[in-house]
Design a binder for these strands. Structure first.
Lengths: 233, 233
DNA sequence: ATTTGTCAGATGTCAGACATCTTGCGTCTG
DNA sequence: CAGACGCAAGATGTCTGACATCTGACAAAT
């Protein structure tokens, strides 16, 4: 499944070589002709692969001079930075930093949502929590995770901030797997239900500070869960 | 200066047409041949322009079917989303949302930095505040803004979180102009110096909560400044 | 009615060519 | 000898035309 196009393959391999340190930031990557020979593709294919990396600000192309690797803090692709940061022994550290980032965005969005949430959205949240309870009693992990994600999505939407949603989207994909893992434990499910209930009540009261604190507690517990899993693995 | 390449022009124009609503999310954009005729460029140029938009998850290309516009919340380019959100009457609202986002990231980073900042980095912050004072007395707006930005950059770096830095970088560029405007007012400069001094002291005390509150107050003031400017304009 | 063949249209890839920009090196001049 | 000039090598930018492959729909055969 998902046979990748050649340009995708070339882009991935080149990014791998960059991340592995073969082409450190500031240095130049091989010319288009050399790369097309190495990967046995045409120059156009190499160019299109380069364009995708350039669009993510991983490469800077300078006409007549060559193509250069940007410093990591200029990259605009969370996924690429994640791949780079997860190299070697930094995997766990990167995971923790991701949770930290998620915590900033979710607590902030929750605080905003408390001031802007509509009654309809509150109803939606109430249903999400109810679904989580049902799924918990029915021992249905998939439904539980779905309701969990829907809850957070609803809050994100209620924050009425497009940019937060945009920044959060890539995180969503990355964190999805880990979430399904931790949610398998019944105890963690119960804790999560309690936290979500608290968040809901704070939002229903339209109290920004309380909403923020409730979400913060939830994030803190998620971080603790992750630490436990990383330690035991 | 900065004569853009053809593919940049084509990509910009196509993005403009998307943002203007000519191609709403879910719909398809014209085929490569049609676009190459419209813009009077070759098909390869159109393809490379498409590739840049695809890399930013603005477009989804499906072989044999066509190229489709993704919903706005899937876009991974803050700048593109900003352009889309600023259309029509939404300019001020988008600006406020940007500040809200910045607030989340900066307060979060500041809280983290309080736990991790080194003595050297504290010295750097002290120097930044001193530079702001000097620039204020010398009435040098450019130096003032530079020291201001350096201060925030230092905190971002001290947070030791790569992802926050990555997400913040595009914000940096967007907010730079507005910052130079508000910093022209002497009163605002004085307020800013006070806030930065408070932030520095909280970080020096390595007190996360206090650091967060200090940065939050600073962000709140920035938001108020912006509102005043938007109202009077 | 279901299957199969075919075709139009879209994207994917290739090859070769020419244009333009940057840089360094050699040469010509003062 | 120093500086200006010019030229060629190497890199990216663009164009042209062609062929390959995938998708979806319609028509023909079973």
């Amino acid at each position: 499944m998902a046979r990748k196009s050649l340009v995708g393959v070339v882009a991935d391999e080149l990014l791998d070589r960059i991340i592995s340190g073969e082409f450190p930031p500031g240095s130049s990557v091989p010319g288009e002709l050399e790369l097309s020979a190495r990967h046995d593709v045409s120059r156009m294919t190499v160019r299109e692969a380069m364009k995708t990396l350039e669009a993510q600000r991983i490469l800077s192309v300078e006409r007549g001079r060559g193509t250069f690797v940007n410093p990591l803090n200029r990259w605009s692709s969370l996924e690429a930075v994640l791949r780079a940061a997860s190299e070697g022994q930094n995997g766990p550290a990167a995971a923790v930093q991701l949770i930290e980032l998620r915590r900033m965005l979710e607590t902030g969005a929750c605080e905003l949502a408390a001031q802007r949430i509509t009654d309809d959205e509150l109803d939606g949240l109430r249903n999400c929590v109810a679904d989580m309870r049902k799924a918990h009693q029915a021992n249905n992990v998939a439904s539980f995770v779905a309701a969990d994600l829907a809850f957070h999505d609803q809050i994100l939407h209620a924050s009425e901030n497009v940019f937060v949603a945009v920044l959060f989207e890539p995180l969503h994909r990355v964190l999805e797997k880990g979430r399904t893992e931790t949610s398998k434990v019944p105890d963690i499910q119960e804790h999560a239900i309690g936290h979500h209930q608290n968040i809901f009540e704070a939002l229903a009261a339209r109290d920004p500070r309380q909403a923020r604190n409730a979400m913060d507690a939830h994030m803190q517990q998620t971080l603790d869960d992750l630490r436990s899993y990383v330690l035991e693995a």
